[in-house]
Every structure is written in C-alpha cells, then in structure tokens.
Write a protein that binds this DNA or RNA. Structure first.
Length: 291
DNA sequence: CACTTGACCTGTCCGC
DNA sequence: TGCGGACAGGTCAAGT
C-alpha cells in the first residue's frame, strides 16, 4: 500500500525528525523483518548518528554516520513511526484511531535514540523488511540495478514513459505500469487513478497505445502523484506518516475504492474488476477497451 | 525469453 | 455465533 507518495511523505517527515539523533539501542524480532546479525547491528547501528533520509522508488534509505545505511521496504502494511521524547500514542492522542500505544503486536523493530525519542517499524503482515548494509553497496543491490526512472524526475518525459512501457509491449498497460523496472514507485492505487485520468482501459495491450495515450498517461501520472504527495498520501487501513498521521488523498480519488459511485467526469457508475491479478477500478464509459 | 501465477502473512469481511 | 474462504496488494520465485 505504501507507494511513491506515501513513502515520499514518510521520507520528508523523517528527514525533519531524524538527522543528528544518536542511536542508543535497537530491538527487533525475526530475521525476516531484520535479517542482520545482532553483532553487526551492535557494531554499525548502536552509537551511530542519523545523517540523512532518502527515497528511491518505494524504498527508504536511512544513512548512518557509520558508513552503513538502513534499507527499508514497507511492502503493504509497514509503518515507520517516530515518537518524540515524552509523547505516547494511544487514547487521547490525536492519531489514536490508527496508532495506539507503541510498541504493539505489529512492532518488528524499535530504535531508541539517546535523547529518549524512538522509531518504530511496524508491519502487521510481515512482508516488509529493514536491512543494515554498507552505504556504498546499495547501488549494487539487484533492485537498484534494475529499477526504472523516478516518475517525478525532471528527465522523465512522455517519450521515456513510452519507451519504458514498450519493454512490455505484449502485456496489458496496468501490469506494465506496475512493473518497477518500467517506472519506479507506482502501485495499485496510482495505476488505477492515472489510467482513469488518461481514459485508458487497464487491460489495453501496450502496443495498441497511441502517442496521445502515452502523453495523457504521463501527464495524468505526474499530476496524480504530485497531488497525493501534497495530500500526505493515501490511507486505507494501515498507512500513516512518520508522525502517525493519515494521508487524505483517497478523498480526492476518482475511481480507487469507489465502485458503485459515479465517475466524477461523466457520472457513469464505477465498477471493480480484475486486471493483472489485481483489484482494478474503472469507469466503463471513459475507459473503453478497443477491439 | 516473455509473461502469468503463486507464495509470503495477518486481519477483516461475507455467506452459510 | 462460529467457521471457511476470499480478499487486500508489493515483490520475487516458480511455472507455463
């Protein structure tokens, strides 16, 4: 569920909150959520300071003064929540509808800082992970070698989108745009929203798309990602930002999770179907499949 | 090689 | 009320 706008919102929050703080202790549950050896965590995390927080695709990078970094993928239900000294989530806290007292049952990793603040990595479904590794080795990870361009980067033109999508010219456009090696950071929500914006049926085979389609999709994708970042991302059930707050993009969504309601453009009832193995929301009038 | 499906998990919701 | 099954969706491995 955290896609580019959600991870970017967390990054910007953590960038304000973490740099300069010194790690005092780290606790974690299973090797699946944190595969490093305890000795390495002790050697390269404990005592180190946070230098910077960055993002690439849906991956967060927390750089430490030890020349090591934390590489974090939240997958579907992951959260990274910062708790300032003396602050406690739960009853009476403005965000208690989504974040209760921490740590809780879903907490996988807890980082204690020297000043008493804490960072919690929570993940109900345990798909996400956090990994400590030398900063210099990050670009050599398979994921970083093959991941596509950032869709909000200045060099991401409609022609770049066209060329990248055509790498998967025989599949449907929804599967292609969800492919992280085609373009970075797009997941189910923004795939559906941007295809609606471009009036393209998600099951359209990529090779059938016209230049006008590629231009429209490019424009729509960028506008929607920018709007969602401005709204703090999309919260359905799990996503919260670095301070435990929900994002409000879904109240601006046109089709995602809006089946049975009218299309904001033409009034036709939005339907939910299945494309590329994913729940898919479309306006059957605006997004017609060409024969 | 290109593409699709299943596995990884847990919580929630729906129908019987 | 309880229970089984479908579903949620990011990514990778396995299968076609």
């Amino acid at each position: 569920m955290p896609e580019l706008p959600e991870v970017e919102t967390i990054r910007s929050g953590l960038s304000r909150l973490l740099p300069g703080r010194q790690i005092a202790a780290v606790r974690f549950d299973t090797p699946k959520s944190f595969p490093n050896a305890p000795a390495d965590v002790e050697a390269f995390m404990t005592g180190a300071q946070i230098v910077a927080v960055a993002r690439r695709a849906k991956v967060l990078l927390i750089e430490l003064s030890s020349k090591y970094s934390l590489v974090i993928h939240l997958k579907m239900t992951g959260q990274l929540v910062f708790q300032a000294p003396g602050v406690h989530f739960g009853a009476g806290h403005p965000n208690d509808s989504l974040v209760g007292p921490l740590p809780d049952r879903s907490t996988r990793v807890t980082v204690d800082f020297a000043d008493g603040s804490q960072l919690f990595f929570n993940d109900q479904r345990k798909f996400g992970w956090m990994r400590l590794m030398p900063t210099a080795e990050i670009p050599q990870l398979d994921f970083f070698k093959k991941v596509g361009p950032e869709p909000l980067g200045s060099d991401f033109t409609w022609q770049v989108l066209k060329t990248r999508l055509l790498r998967r010219k025989n599949t449907n456009v929804k599967a292609a745009i969800l492919d992280q090696s085609v373009v970075a950071g797009v997941g189910n929500i923004y795939a559906d929203e941007s295809l609606w914006g471009a009036k393209i049926h998600p099951a359209t085979i990529v090779r059938e798309l016209s230049d006008k389609d590629f231009k429209n999709l490019h424009k729509s994708l960028q506008a929607i990602l920018r709007l969602s970042i401005e709204k703090g991302g999309s919260t359905d059930k799990h996503y919260v930002d670095a301070e435990g707050k929900k994002g409000s993009y879904l109240s601006f969504a046109s089709v995602f999770r809006r089946e049975g309601r009218p299309c904001p453009r033409c009034g036709t009832t939005i339907i939910k179907t299945r494309v590329a193995g994913r729940g898919t929301h479309i306006c059957p009038h605006c997004q017609q499949l060409q024969a």
